[in-house]
Nucleic acid binder design. Structure first.
Lengths: 219, 219
DNA sequence: CCAGGTCCGTGACCTACGTCACTAACCTGC
DNA sequence: GCAGGTTAGTGACGTAGGTCACGGACCTGG
């Protein structure tokens, strides 16, 4: 059982009537995670979706040899693990906490009941899924057309967001997983940005000093 | 205006009430395409979705230099171009006919009206979108973890389907676009399968003679 | 029947990137 | 304090795969 107000702010539940949110909140449970705790693995059966309250969760595909391709990074307010609710299949990727985190686990049943009573609420769902498709499609195109340095530039801009100053919320190893390259290469790409003066670094924080060039390199 | 019965067989419309299908069919128009005709480009505004009646349509991202990454291959009965209906954004990729084809163009308005009257019909939509996500996710993982030869093996198995004997429905150039590699490399991968005796070739047709090995190579 | 296109096949390069190997800077917990 | 673990940085080296440059097999349409 979880407080309704935290769920009401999640996009997917935004249009739910109050009693729908309450119903979902009643069925939900909060869970605390340590770094590297695994919420689920690829192929697992799926019975619940998750909302991040605090911390960061990586959604990743893991190869047999342990290499990890990080598909998405989930932050407070984000929802993930919902696909099984809609097509009944198992997990298509694994979820692992990158830092101490807390999440809300919402069993599918409660959510499905609300959607079934009021299927117009599915409109935000299709929008969410469509945006997921656009993101993966773009990642696929990037993987084809951009080199490692370009993809690294893109990810850095992405992680920086609006502000020029930021700190990496992940290790370089994990960043490499997002970029789809080796840790060493990504490190060298970053070094090259520092050398070019497009990026500066002091005690663990980065600062983008030439956003324009970075953007050009990323496209 | 298009015959209702061809649309009634499309997954997405399968659960539509008869008069909903009729409404959609009334607004739809059929279009004939020659090889290489473009239905839409990336970034175009989206006002209609398409159903393939005949032929094959490639959904692809095109780089500035003309290189093409084929995301999906649409065959008779398949539906595509629907995403803009759900999130209002433009085309995320281009659509081009691979051979003389005929498609039905369905304006979003007619379809949206049906969904709005009966939003429970959105359930198949979320299932369709979820399956699209799973496909692209897998493609992304393959791009990370498999080499060109492995991805080529996978695509060949995919294009062969059930039967061992098949002919390539696309040129090697286009196959390369699906695999995400150069035409020459893909050709060499195929050659290697021939040399290994996993695959045979006679006058334009291929025959898989060692499916098991091919599958191992593709995973 | 030839001229010009498109497609397939294959070798000779070159380069981007992965792997390995090592050092240095940390951050813990004894 | 030091021992052991994780992260970051960087060079040396090998290789998968891209690019280029062919030739040959077709298929058109004049």
């Amino acid at each position: 059982m979880v407080r309704s107000d935290v769920l009401a702010e999640v996009q997917l539940f935004a249009d739910f009537p109050a009693e729908g949110v309450a119903e979902v909140a009643a069925a939900a449970v909060e869970r605390q995670l340590e770094r590297n705790d695994v919420l689920f693995n690829e192929q697992d059966e799926a019975h619940e979706l998750f909302v991040v309250l605090d911390g960061r969760i990586a959604i990743a595909n893991v190869a047999l040899d342990g290499r990890e391709s990080v598909v998405a990074l989930m932050e407070p307010g984000d929802l993930f693990g919902e696909m099984g609710l809609f097509d009944g299949n198992g997990r298509s990727a694994a979820a692992r906490a990158l830092e101490p985190s807390s999440v809300v686990a919402v069993p599918y049943g409660a959510v499905r009941a609300v959607f079934e009573r009021n299927p117009a609420l599915l409109w935000p769902v299709v929008a969410l899924l469509a945006s997921r498709i656009r993101v993966t499609d773009e990642a696929l195109a990037d993987a084809m057309f951009l080199d490692v340095t370009g993809r690294t530039a893109k990810r850095l801009l992405d992680l920086a967001g609006e502000s020029d100053e930021f700190e990496l919320p992940v290790t370089q190893e994990e960043l490499a997983g997002m970029v789809g390259a080796s840790r060493e290469r990504v490190n060298k790409a970053i070094s090259s940005f520092l050398r070019l003066g497009w990026l500066e670094q002091e005690d663990g924080r980065y600062r983008i000093t030439n956003r324009q060039q970075m953007e050009i390199r990323a496209s």
